[in-house]
Design a protein around this nucleic acid. Structure first.
Lengths: 198, 198
DNA sequence: AAAAAATAGTTTCGAGTCGATACTTTGCAA
DNA sequence: TTGCAAAGTATCGACTCGAAACTATTTTTT
């Protein structure tokens, strides 16, 4: 009987807690809750399709009502800016304000973690990443949640030339940096579960 | 420049969120918050030195005041029992009640996760476990938090015979199952780092 | 084109989290 | 004995969070 999956669960749980505590510490000066810090971090990593309240709520596992509250607070504190989408006027777009960027720069909510992996060889880290990534994918398809991946590996990702990319779903051209950001339209490429188009 | 540590951070963060959402779902029927479910799960895994409010607060990253509130709620709902320690009457001991055990049995807060690792080879899981465990240890010693490990690997662990163990710090004999539970007196045993196979 | 349904987001409500602070009881050491 | 540290509890206020009702747009149906 192998207990490894349980142990892995426990480690992820435990590290998740510590990360949360770290976010709490990082936000303490500004009176921010962990979820607020997490929201700001998310904004630095979300691509142009994913900088909306809804995508953020999915990502953080909250309802849209709850999300709305947190965004209200971040807006009041001047850490984010909200503006309307040109094409669909129901949609609100989000971005970090200058002081939001400054806050993340000062608080460095992720540095303690980065530091904690310093003794582990890149190869072991890559192995761990691959195992966890697969777990995440399985977990998400089991619970049919939004996927949230980056472009490489996405079914809609098209390479036009050496440096030019394109999202086949939205039809937009993408810059290299943008192709590395988080997208909530992500869909697993090949071999996966068929989508029912009805 | 290798981005793997960042990616690992993001995966742990993301899986931690999903786990939290899973705990939320598991507790929804009984109107329990994620932290309550987590507390109950902790109790099933804590050894005899670690079933106190203080250890639990350390584990969950809360203050003792906050912990006291949650325990009050769990007690009111009849999911845990609190009793006094014989030797030190300031200390409160905690255990799951029968309905607490029943709740965990019914809600299965961890089964979705267990299921999500089904396609990953035991060997890859073990490698991931080893990398995360090391990250956890480094993180904890960086932030001088309580360690929380299990007996094997602990500096105080002594093997009396094939099936008999002893904690050198507390001087108690330990059963095999108990030696596999979580202990907040855990201290790292000096030792080498193993490289991945494969 | 008008009506209906769906979608993005906001508001309101109530129970609960959470840290800070002050407090009680118990243990321990000078 | 006196003082102080430790384990836990109680209280307060700002905030989280889901649920449900609501507004404003867009899309679909008729």
């Amino acid at each position: 009987m192998d207990k490894s999956p349980e142990v892995l669960l426990e480690l992820v749980e435990r590290l998740g807690n510590l990360l949360r505590a770290e976010f709490r510490r990082a936000g303490a000066d500004e009176q921010l809750q962990p979820v607020h810090v997490h929201a700001l971090v998310y904004l630095t990593r979300a691509n142009r399709y994913s900088n909306t309240p809804q995508a953020m709520a999915e990502y953080l596992g909250l309802t849209k009502g709850t999300m709305s509250q947190s965004l209200l607070l971040l807006d009041r504190r001047g850490l984010i800016e909200r503006y309307q989408d040109d094409l669909d006027r129901r949609v609100v777009r989000l971005r970090l304000s200058t002081s939001g960027e400054q806050f993340l720069y000062d608080a460095q909510p992720q540095s303690a973690w980065q530091h904690a992996t310093r003794n582990i060889s890149p190869n072991r880290i890559r192995n761990a990443v691959s195992a966890l990534r697969e777990t995440l994918t399985t977990f998400q398809s089991d619970n049919d949640g939004q996927p949230f991946g980056t472009c490489n590996g996405c079914r809609h990702f098209e390479r036009l030339s050496a440096r030019a990319y394109r999202c086949g779903l939205m039809g937009d051209r993408l810059s290299g940096p943008e192709a590395r950001k988080i997208c909530w339209l992500y869909e697993e490429k090949g071999g996966g579960v068929e989508e029912d188009e009805e």
